[in-house]
């Protein structure tokens, strides 16, 4: 199904991005429990304005951090960002040809590259949770953290971003250049995010919020023990469809000499 030699090389090629990115995610995520602790008393009991995050509980604060624009950028870079240029980038650099000259099927190459994206998604989700645990230790609010819910939060985070990594592999397997695959993937993530954010404070868009994949990913509910398995099913279906497209199109494509 996958090729471990290729997988090791892919990870090696992205090792600096992964190391730095994961370190940044840990630091970023530990800020939220600290912020919660700092403003806990001042915002307790006050009404939450539409569109604003719920900073009155630790779960709400962690949830805000999970879907904050900076988090979206970090999570995106470390999951979909690993796969968005996987095939088109190799093709653009002219290195795909030598890779394809080895006894590897195109499907095996594609699945190996997809695995890297999922590993990135799993690690970035884990990094966020490690940062959160460290943050609660620093802020002294460990008693408010539902540790038993952290594995399910990690799994949903990995599934959610693994889904975007799969969409990225579907786009990268369809183009010869990284620019269009990057544009489509980023636009897709942005469109979903914007619908979710605008819908949270604008009544006109609110009925369409369900169309956003972000609307189905609710870390606060997961931390509070409300697990929506239909969301996991939705993310899974989207990922399977994207992977199916990639597995269909890439082996059938003519790979003419790079320009």
């Amino acid at each position: 199904m996958i090729n471990l030699i290729l997988f090791r090389r892919l990870i090696r090629g992205h090792r600096i991005r992964l190391a730095v990115g994961l370190a940044v995610v840990v630091i970023w995520s530990l800020l939220f429990p600290v912020i919660y602790k700092a403003f806990q008393d001042s915002i307790a009991g006050k009404p939450i304005p539409p569109g604003a995050g719920n900073f009155s509980t630790l779960a709400g604060t962690i949830s805000v951090g999970f879907i904050h624009p900076i988090s979206i950028a970090l999570f995106g870079i470390l999951s979909a960002g690993l796969t968005v240029g996987a095939l088109s980038g190799e093709r653009q650099r002219g290195t795909l040809e030598l890779l394809l000259s080895r006894p590897l099927s195109r499907r095996k190459i594609l699945l190996t590259m997809l695995l890297e994206g999922w590993v990135g998604a799993a690690f970035v989700s884990l990094a966020y949770i490690i940062g959160t645990i460290l943050g609660t230790q620093i802020a002294g609010v460990t008693d408010q953290l539902a540790f038993e819910q952290l594995p399910i939060l990690w799994a949903y985070g990995a599934l959610f971003w693994g889904m975007f990594a799969t969409i990225a592999i579907a786009t990268t397997s369809s183009f010869d250049n990284t620019a269009p695959s990057m544009a489509i993937t980023v636009s897709f993530i942005m469109a979903n995010y914007i619908i979710e954010v605008i819908g949270s404070f604008w009544d006109v868009v609110e009925p369409y919020q369900y169309l956003s994949l972000f609307n189905h990913f609710s870390p606060v509910d997961l931390l509070n023990g409300t697990v929506d398995s239909s969301a996991a099913l939705l993310f899974g279906i989207v990922a399977v469809l994207a992977a199916g497209w990639a597995l269909y199109i890439f082996p059938r494509r003519d790979l003419a000499a790079p320009n």
Binding site: G94, E97, L98, S101, P103, L104
Partner: peptide, 16 residues
């Protein structure tokens, strides 16, 4: 491809 050695025109490598 298991039994063939190939050198493409405009050979490219992984720079790192």
């Amino acid at each position: 491809r298991r039994r063939v050695g190939y050198l493409p025109s405009g050979f490219a490598v992984y720079d790192y």
